[in-house]
Simulated scan of single mutants.
Amino acid sequence: MDWTQLKTAVGLMSAVVTGAIAQVLGGWDMWLQALVLFVVLDYITGLMAAAIEKKLRSEVGFRGVMKKVFIFCLVAVAFQADMLLGTEIIRVAVIGFYLGTEGLSILENAGRAGLPLPEALRNALIQVKGSGKKVGA
């Protein structure tokens, strides 16, 4: 197998796996895209804040990754619940809740790094998180 064939095979496999994961999570819509972005940014900003504080520890990082995986497991469960009930609200509520949680964590990480926190963004994230709770209640 030459380099071009290997790149094609890896690209194809990546597309299949990514597509399957997106399908289990309810599709690659704006909600899931935002959640993936927030989860990745929270992890990166957490690493940066820990490095600045000189508190970088691999076991804490591993626990963080496991929590992120659980978020996506809950999104998959919420999507299946929507499918069973014939609704489209449970998945959005779960994602909205975690968007708010992850967003507030990003702001917390910025604060740990010594950055001033924009109050308008903090308030918006609290609203997103709160609306997820109300919708899911």
Score class of each variant (00 low, 15 high):
G100V: 01
G136H: 07
A34Q: 06
A22I: 09
G19P: 05
E53A: 15
A81K: 10
M1W: 12
A110K: 14
L6R: 06
A93K: 02
K68G: 01
A51L: 10
S105G: 09
G26K: 03
A137K: 14
V60S: 09
A120S: 06
R112Y: 02
M66R: 11
A22L: 13
G132C: 11
G61I: 02
D82P: 11
L104H: 09
A93L: 00
L121C: 02
G11F: 06
V94E: 03
G130N: 08
M66P: 05
L56V: 02
R112T: 03
A15I: 13
K68C: 01
V16G: 09
A81V: 15
L121P: 04
L41H: 01
T101H: 04
G103V: 08
E53T: 11
A93V: 00
R63T: 14
L56G: 04
L25I: 03
L104F: 09
F62I: 01
A124R: 02
Y43H: 12
L6H: 10
G86T: 09
L41W: 01
K68V: 02
A120P: 10
M1E: 11
I21R: 10
M30P: 09
V94W: 06
M30H: 14
K129W: 12
I89N: 05
G64E: 07
T18C: 13
M1I: 10
Q127W: 08
G111V: 13
V94R: 03
K67P: 05
A9I: 14
L117A: 10
L32G: 12
A110G: 05
A137T: 13
V94A: 06
G130W: 06
V60P: 06
A22K: 05
N123H: 07
Q127C: 11
P118L: 00
I90R: 10
A15V: 14
L121D: 00
I71G: 08
W3V: 08
V92H: 04
V135I: 15
I106H: 14
E119T: 00
T101A: 07
V135A: 06
N123M: 13
A120L: 06
A49I: 07
G19T: 07
G111T: 12
L74M: 15
A51G: 14
S105F: 00
V92N: 02
T4N: 12
G130H: 02
V10H: 04
F97Q: 01
R112H: 06
K54A: 12
F62A: 05
L37D: 00
A78P: 00
I21T: 14
V40F: 12
Q80K: 15
L35M: 12
T101P: 02
I52S: 04
L56D: 05
M1Q: 11
V94M: 00
L84A: 03
R122V: 00
N123V: 10
Q127N: 12
V94I: 01
L47V: 15
L99E: 07
W3A: 06
K68Q: 02
L115S: 14
G64P: 07
G61S: 09
D2S: 08
W31H: 08
L12A: 15
T101Y: 15
P118R: 07
V92S: 03
G86N: 13
A78K: 00
S131W: 10
S105P: 05
V75A: 07
W31F: 02
W3T: 12
V94L: 08
V135R: 11
L125Y: 03
E59P: 11
I106L: 10
V128P: 05
R122C: 02
L117E: 11
G96S: 15
E102C: 14
A15G: 15
G114H: 05
